[in-house]
């Protein structure tokens, strides 16, 4: 089912990605008393990214808890708390700060359940914002979801639409596994139709066909979903473009991608992570494993060309993958 068909079955309201995430948080806080939010300035201040907003007024300081600037400490505490009966939702602010807390993520959060023979659950959600485009320079613009998707024991989702932002955030909070929600900072103001049903979730591991097409498949994530849909509009009548948002990076819905490739025979993968050893490589590998004999052209990659995100606008615009890059990639193979 396409994303549009999915939404047509639901009561929806138009809202931004930021509002959709806040709504997901609000609904889950109201639904389950064991759920609480922790992070830097998420309380009365409303969050540096203005996502938690007024939740502090509604739920109080115990449930929307400000932490010290101590990422390893509070990510570790959230892991310990998740192992002992509560369900913390961490806002890690910029995904670059995952570096500061990586030990607790990779050696504790990701490994505890497995090392302990499955005898504990770690129901923790980690939200972090990714991406360049606002001149935040290298330490506040990274796109690092390949690290987390690569690391066994963690699940990773990355919404490209407001509906997915709400549905994935809720699925993450309800999951008994550690789930990272990667929010691209350039699409917080992007609007979309969002189901109002309080039990609307996007199951982790299900991709969405955002637009159907016949000639080429674009697998795009986060900001590049919207930009690829714009490209598809522009090329309509010339090239028929199918756009898929994987939504979930790990687990990854290989079948939806492979099925599309069997139909179109051509594929572009657009994702803001650096090109080498990353998200693109994984999606392409799986696609060719499943649909090699349907391929009519080499699969193309659009991503960050293995640099950090530079500060100055012309430099940043040079390396930031965008719709133009997607269009060029489509032109190369159609």
């Amino acid at each position: 089912m396409t994303a549009q068909a999915e939404l047509e079955r639901e009561e929806t309201e138009t809202m931004t990605v930021r509002e959709a995430i806040r709504e997901a948080l609000r609904e889950e806080l109201a639904r389950d008393e064991d759920v609480y939010i922790m992070g830097e300035d998420v309380g009365a201040f409303g969050g540096v990214l203005e996502v938690t907003g007024d939740l502090y007024e509604e739920f109080g300081e115990e449930r929307v808890r400000d932490t010290p600037i101590a990422e390893a400490g509070y990510v570790g505490a959230a892991t310990g708390a998740a192992a002992t009966g509560t369900r913390p939702v961490i806002e890690l602010m910029f995904s670059d700060f995952i570096g500061v807390s990586m030990e607790q993520i990779m050696n504790q959060m990701a490994k505890m359940r497995y090392m302990f023979g499955g005898k504990t659950e770690i129901p923790v959600t980690v939200r972090a914002t990714e991406g360049g485009g606002m001149g935040a320079a290298s330490q506040h613009s990274g796109t690092v979801h390949a690290w987390i998707s690569h690391f066994p024991g963690l699940k990773a989702v990355a919404p490209g639409t407001a509906a997915a932002a709400k549905g994935l955030t809720k699925a993450a909070i309800r999951s008994n596994d550690p789930v990272f929600v990667f929010e691209n900072k350039m699409i917080y103001e992007q609007q979309g139709d969002v189901p109002t049903d309080e039990d609307y979730i996007v199951p982790i591991g299900e991709a969405a066909v955002e637009r159907e097409g016949e000639d080429v498949t674009v697998v795009a994530t986060q900001r590049l979903v919207g930009e690829s849909l714009d490209v598809a509009d522009r090329l309509a009548g010339d090239v028929s473009v199918e756009v898929i948002d994987p939504r979930s990076l790990y687990p990854l819905d290989t079948e939806t991608i492979a099925e599309s490739l069997r139909k179109t025979g051509r594929m572009v993968v657009a994702d803001e992570t650096p090109l080498s050893y990353g998200t693109h490589a994984e999606i392409i590998t799986r696609a060719q494993e499943e649909a090699f004999f349907s391929l009519d052209a080499p699969i193309q990659r659009v991503g960050t060309p293995d640099t950090h995100m530079p500060f100055s606008t012309p430099l940043e615009q040079e390396v930031l993958p965008d719709g133009e890059g997607v269009e060029n990639a489509i032109r190369r193979i159609t």
């Binding site: 064991d34 570790g76 505490a77 892991t79 002992t84 913390p88």
Partner: peptide, 17 residues
């Protein structure tokens, strides 16, 4: 040194509930 953050988290669960 990885245990103390986890213990702080367990203490947080205790306190929270």
């Amino acid at each position: 040194g990885a245990g103390p953050p986890l213990a702080t988290g367990a203490a947080l669960s205790i306190d929270y509930q």
